[in-house]
Each structure stands twice: as C-alpha cells, then as structure tokens.
C-alpha cells in the first residue's frame, strides 16, 4: 500500500505516492531524480547522503521519507542561488576541496549546516562538524580550509 508524502524540496512542494518503507534518499534519487545526494553506505556511516531537514543536517539514508512529511528539505541542488554558486561551493572550487566528488554534496551540506548555526567556527569545530562525513580522496585538509575560508568571507561581508 502506498502512502502520500507531502514535502517541500528546495522550495518546491511535492505530493508523492511511496511505499512506507522508502527512505528519503530513495525518494530524492529514484522518484525525483535529484541524484546530487549520493548513496554510499546506506547505513548512516558515511554521510554522503546528507541533506538539510528544516535546516538540520540528516543522513537521508537513515530517515524514512514519511518522517519528513510536512517539512522542508534542502539538497545540494538547492544550495546555489540559480546560476550563482553558494559561497561554500565557490570555496570548494577555489581550494580544490574535492577530488572524485562523491562526498562533496554531503560535505557542502554539512558545512552549510555548521555555518548557519555557528558562523565563526574554529578549525576543530569544523573538523567535528564533518566528522560523520567520510572522504577517501582529499584527506579533509582542503575541505576544512574551504569551510573556514567561507566563514571568514561571510563574516567580512556581513560587516
């Protein structure tokens, strides 16, 4: 028996019929073709599938889609302002903070969640904020740098 899910994703409301056991990552990828959100371990161990639900970062593989009924979901596709990249995306480009790119959407989502809550994090706070996000390529160095640089830039712009 399918159930109806009402959810706003990247600002657009959706009404979707899904099996109750469908996870959020499956709805995003298989139903809506929002494949920017990656599935890697499907068990909450790598955070490749991170999205924001009402502004909080969650592993979308570990959330049933029906649990986000009535909520607002932001995926990597909803981070940029049209063709204008989000400052975090721009910083990831400039710092070379990605290699294969598979963890990148999750990292940017985790970085955004951090900066929304703590606009001026320390290096250690950045590392802790992305501690759940695995990256096998970069060694995290440039990812941490890119998030810190974005924080600095946003702080300066706010002045």
């Amino acid at each position: 028996m399918k159930k109806i899910l009402n959810v706003t994703i990247n600002g657009t409301p959706y009404e979707i019929a899904i099996k109750p056991k469908t996870t959020l990552v499956e709805v995003l990828r298989n139903e809506l073709n929002l494949t920017g959100t990656k599935r890697s371990c499907n068990a909450g161990g790598c955070s490749s599938c991170s999205v924001l639900v009402d502004g909080k970062v969650v592993n979308s593989c570990s959330v049933l889609a029906l649990q986000v009924d009535g909520k607002e979901v932001t995926t990597i596709e909803g981070i940029a302002d049209g063709a204008k990249l989000h400052p975090l995306q721009q910083a990831f480009l400039e710092h070379g903070a990605y290699q294969c790119g598979y963890c990148t959407p999750g990292m940017i989502i985790a970085g955004k969640a951090l900066l929304d809550e703590n606009p001026n994090p320390t290096k250690q706070e950045v590392k802790e904020a992305i501690a759940g996000n695995l990256c096998r390529c970069t060694g995290y160095v440039r990812i941490v740098d890119a998030i810190l640089a974005t924080a600095k830039k946003l702080q300066e712009e706010a002045k």
């Binding site: 494949t35 990656k38 990249l85 790119g101």
Partner: peptide, 16 residues
C-alpha cells in the same frame, strides 16, 4: 569542479 560542487556530476550510480 562546477559539476561536482553543484551535485550535477553524474556517476554510474546516478544512471536511470
């Protein structure tokens, strides 16, 4: 870069 930071980059897992 642009594809990868926006989630537009297609991997085999994304092929349907």
């Amino acid at each position: 870069g642009y594809e990868k930071v926006t989630g537009a980059a297609k991997f085999t897992t994304d092929i349907r």
